[in-house]
């Protein structure tokens, strides 16, 4: 673990991603020269206007997408494809409609790589543990369509954690929820993430959102991006104390950070609706 001290958990260096339109051959630059180091246990939020390539970064780290140019490394080794060491929580959760709550949480354990070395009893126990962690006890046999938005979000979170990844990649995981549920689940997310634990035990997290206050509330650092092409505009270190609760929103520094981020993306946000 000696090397781990100065080596970042995740390293993106000069990452560029171009898409070529199928028929016209037209090239669109989604990401241009994005460099970003993320340390073990860090909670990083990426905010930016639509079209800034937030989701592309996530897909590249997840291994679902390869960069056109640049280096993407985890623990110093290049990322070659998707793997259960990097768990992804998709926009709209990507729950399997034909699986119950249990079935969804145990999906990776039962059919994928994470549960390979476990017995069925161990898998079931692990599923039960995560059902409890996200407070879904009693709803184990329900299907996703029978759940509220907030409950679906918890299922997705439990599935993500049950696979035991060491990096969490979350793509607007609270985006589909109403404002009140969002605020409750933000605090809940920090609790489950392990805010009170020492940094080495926390999961390295990349969290994509378009909600500035959400980013400030959750993050250790906020990466502000600009669009067309997607570039890193600025990176802010949010040195608000942890553990955080609702009262932190009243902290003058909280408002200061939010204003700062808004100032950075305002022009492009205004352009987008003009």
């Amino acid at each position: 673990m000696n090397g781990a001290v100065n080596r970042p958990k995740l390293r993106l260096q000069g990452v560029t991603k171009a898409f070529v339109a199928p028929r016209t051959g037209h090239r669109t630059l989604a990401l241009a020269d994005v460099s970003l180091d993320i340390d073990q246990g860090e909670f990083v939020c990426i905010v930016g206007p639509s079209g800034c390539g937030k989701s592309t970064i996530l897909n590249i780290v997840a291994g679902l997408d390869a960069p056109t140019a640049g280096i993407v490394e985890k623990d110093g080794a290049p990322i070659a494809g998707p793997g259960p060491d990097r768990g992804v929580m998709f926009q709209d959760y990507a729950l399997y409609p034909w699986q119950t709550v249990q079935g969804n949480i145990g999906f990776g354990l039962n059919y994928g790589a994470p549960g390979k070395s476990m017995s069925q009893a161990e898998r079931d126990a692990r599923v039960a543990e995560f059902v409890k962690l996200v407070s879904l006890t009693g709803s184990e046999s329900k299907y996703p369509h029978q759940l509220s938005g907030g409950m679906r979000q918890r299922v997705a979170l439990a599935r993500l954690l049950a696979n035991g990844p060491d990096i969490l990649l979350l793509d607007e995981p609270l985006g589909a929820l109403d404002a009140q549920t969002r605020i409750i689940l933000q605090a809940e997310l920090l609790r489950i993430w392990g805010e009170t634990a020492p940094r080495e035990q926390r999961k390295t997290t990349v969290f994509i959102t378009h909600d500035i206050e959400e980013a400030v509330f959750l993050a250790d650092r906020v990466v502000v991006m600009s669009s067309h092409p997607g570039r890193v505009r600025d990176i802010l270190t949010i040195d608000l104390p942890r553990p955080r609760d609702e009262s932190i929103r009243a902290d003058p520094r909280f408002g200061h950070f939010a204003d700062e981020i808004w100032r950075l993306i305002r022009d492009q946000a205004l352009q987008a609706i003009a």
Partner: peptide, 16 residues
């Protein structure tokens, strides 16, 4: 597509 991508991130082989 997302359901398939999710399965890949959980390490499901092609047949699974």
């Amino acid at each position: 597509r997302k359901l398939l991508q999710a399965a890949r991130t959980m390490g499901l082989p092609l047949h699974a």
